[in-house]
Design a protein around this nucleic acid. Sequence first.
DNA 1: AGCACGCCGACT
DNA 2: GTCGGCGTGCTC
Length: 830
Amino acid sequence: MTEDIFSVETTYFADVILPVPIPRMFTYRVPRHFVADIKIGARVIVQFGRNRVVTAVVGKIHTKPPEKYQAKYILELLDTDPLITEAQLWLFEWIAEYYMCCIGEVMNVAVPSGLKVSSQSRMQLNPDFDHPELLEEKEIEFIEILKVHNSLTYDDAIKFIGEKNINPLIKSLISKHAIIMYEEVKEKYKPKVAKKIRLKRGYEGSEEVLNLIDSLTKSPKQQTIILEYLRYVPINELAEKNNLGIDKSALKQGEISDSALSTLIEKGILEQFEVIVSRFGDDTPEEPLKITLTDAQQAASDDIIQNFAEKDIVLLHGITGSGKTEIYIDLIQKVLDGGSQVLYLLPEIALTTQIVVRLKRVFGDKMGVYHSKFSDNERVEVWRGIVDGRYQFVVGVRSAIFLPMDNLGLVIIDEEHETSYKQFDPAPRYHARDVGIMLGLKQGAKILLGSATPSIESYYQAKTGRYGLVTLNQRFGEAQLPDIQLVDLKAERKAKNMKNDFSSILFNQIHQNLQNKEQTIIFQNRRGYSPYLNCQECSWVSECQQCAVSLTFHLQSKELRCHYCGHKEEVPKVCPVCGSGKIRTIGFGTEKLEDDLKIMFPTARTQRMDLDTTRTKNAYQNIISEFEQGGTDILVGTQMISKGLDFDQVSLVGIFDADRMIHFPDFRASERAFQMLTQVSGRAGRRAKKGLVMIQTNNTQQSLLQKVVTNDYIGYYNDEILEREGYMYPPFARIISITIKHEEEEKAEKAAHWLANKLLEKLGKARVLGPEKALIERIRNKFLFDILIKLEKDKLNIKAAKSFLREKIDELHQTKEHKDVDVVVDVDAV
DNA sequence: AGCACGCCGACT
DNA sequence: GTCGGCGTGCTC
């Protein structure tokens, strides 16, 4: 906003992005005193609706007054430098359009809530009020309270009055001009401060200090404090170092009493002051790590760089344990040296582990970490660190793509096949891999995708030459790929060899492994003890009241839990239908395997790692550290254990329920099964020792399993790509999944049919599948119907198709019968 | 999404 | 007669 600031007559308007799911911007008037400073990307505070005050981001500045309504004024301008860069705004808009959501929803996930503003309505007396005779008794009472407290929030007022509904009272007082409401606006971000202690001026000379100590002989406690202080700040360095002071907490380590310390402060000898510190500490990294690549790694690295000369995107297909991280580090180093920024994306779980420590040792404080378990304040610090140029390199999870980097030279997306890169629940339902690619391309960066089991989509792009392809077929160092064996459950059952759910072959191997003092991993991708309970007399099954799924039995918490809506209930002692006590568990989850193992191997140290044991911030890390240090013999876990963890001493991996993964009714089931089996197998035998993997299955002839055994990714890919082509699934088509929800099944079904028919008219029936009942037909008391749209990549104008879809959904919501159904659109659903 | 307005049931 | 239930519609 520079060109027109002299034309005082011009009125400016700003179209702002509000954090609400409404697919448009809102126009506000720019007050004259903000005209000179307001910029696109700056945060503003505006009133939205009658009583809401929200933080918005300026998307556009113009002079065209809205025709149909009176624009409200912007209340406050929060940034003189834009918080959101133009590059980010562009990306937000791209996401909103591509994933068919509102830009406000994108803004909501992108901006850490620490950068949003909290506002609270406060009320106070109107100093000009001079008609007390207008007030009623209740009102006078409240005015008296307000006189004592100066100002109150709404909640305060409720407490003092002792009633829930104070609205009429407040409204009446406002209309009588007895009180006024105002908004207190404050930033949520609070810098972290450290309390520090130093000698007050006049005492920091060596002579003065010695005199001071002498003078304190009668107050030995105080003397000790001064002496303690001098341990940290030696007397001969007082002149330079006293100013910095020392942490109050450090001083209080010794036998220091609080009262003696405060006496010294009161006497004006010591003083306490506060400094703003980083939440990430200034942990001086342990000795810096220098990476040397093996020949194979070096070759791959060279290959990647060569590919980058022609292609923006390269897929690195490196088998588990091939040491992809070292290659990344080497590349990151090079890009940073060239003065560009680097973004390194990892799936959530892989980030909590050793990798951050390792990266920190290489990159020190140039590196920012962005994790979802971080608090808001920590996120804001990473954000600010990037803006201030402190962080040239960020390693982070999915949402790190929203950080304000504007000079990217390299984007790395590790474990690119991971479906957790796709946000599912609240919109925007974006895929961080695809957005990361977009983000990188826009900034002229190179993009490196890495995986041992690439997604079919990415591998296809590489095979057809759109991405470069680099393959790394050799494990790092001495390590070899494990032997993978299929255990024939049918035969084991026939021979009556099963011990609970363990085949004798696996059982014996675990036993052997324990004797050898080697570690075992047991993989079962299902948590809880058993997926349902069943009455032997009347065939009752534990079911969720709100969802069409069974309730999982959790032994540890002694509960039945719904994994979809979170509903919990007590475990019934007798069958709730027939009163029989013969209730049994059916099927098994991690809890049961853990339980069985504890019974079968009572002396083994067994640990479980799944969502239930890793709820708290450090639980995950603790389990892993314990395992790494050899404190655990057998680790039982869900897919959590398969994500990029390096365990050196694991010589046996046992895999349960592989068949269920393979036969899941979804076109991606086999892809996911292959990836999961290969990744979990990859945890075995990572150093020198050759590991063993045992997969229990009812069908040892299964072709997918055969490919897992021979580690034949390409063979698997060749099979799968034919299927995909035959049925027009990705990568040959884009899919958009539409879910219609309503409490009444019939309403949901009818609306779904209405919409599907409308879509059919234009798209044809090859492109519109369904509607059909969702796999889980009811969740949280809403019935779900799915429509799947397949849009061929080459022949179709995807943008036009999407806007057509948008139109039809709007139309649906305008018809009387269907307007109250929920419609969820998921572009590129995984 | 929130939030107010508005029109119907069960209570002082 | 009022409180308060949640359906409906709007927000610059």
